[in-house]
Computed example of a mutant assay.
Amino acid sequence: MFLRHPILSLATIAYLALVGWLTLTPRSGAVDDSILWPLARFFARFDATDWLTFSRLEFAANIALFVPLGLFFVLLLGRRQWWLAIFLGVVATVAIELAQRGIAGRVSDPRDLVANSIGAILGTLLALLLTAAGARRARARAALSGA
Rank of each mutant, 00 (worst) to 15 (best):
M1W: 11
L3I: 14
R4S: 15
P6N: 09
P6M: 10
S9G: 14
L10W: 15
A11Y: 10
I13W: 11
I13P: 08
Y15I: 08
Y15G: 07
L16K: 08
L16R: 09
L16E: 06
L18F: 15
W21D: 12
L22V: 08
L24D: 01
T25L: 15
G29T: 13
G29F: 05
A30E: 14
V31H: 15
S34Q: 05
L36N: 08
L36G: 09
W37Q: 09
W37M: 13
P38T: 05
A40R: 09
A40H: 12
A40Q: 05
R41G: 10
F42L: 14
F42N: 07
F42T: 11
A48N: 03
D50W: 12
L52V: 03
E58G: 05
F59C: 12
A60R: 10
A61T: 12
A61W: 06
N62E: 02
I63K: 00
L65S: 06
V67L: 15
V67F: 09
V67D: 13
L69P: 09
L71G: 09
F73M: 14
F73H: 12
L75I: 06
L77D: 00
G78P: 06
R79C: 01
R79D: 04
R79A: 01
R80V: 09
Q81H: 14
Q81G: 04
W82V: 06
W83N: 02
L84D: 00
A85L: 03
A85V: 00
L88D: 01
L88P: 02
G89K: 03
G89N: 01
V94K: 03
V94W: 09
V94E: 08
A95W: 11
L98R: 05
L98P: 02
A99F: 04
G102Y: 12
I103W: 03
A104T: 05
G105I: 00
G105V: 01
R106A: 01
V107H: 11
V107D: 11
S108P: 00
P110S: 10
A115N: 07
S117I: 01
I118Q: 04
I118N: 04
G119N: 05
A120D: 02
I121D: 03
G123S: 04
T124Y: 03
L125K: 10
L126N: 06
A127I: 00
L128M: 11
L128E: 04
T131A: 04
T131D: 03
A132S: 14
A133T: 12
G134T: 06
G134F: 10
A135F: 09
A135W: 11
R136H: 13
R137D: 12
R137Y: 02
A138G: 09
R141Y: 04
R141I: 13
A142Q: 14
G146Y: 13
A147C: 10
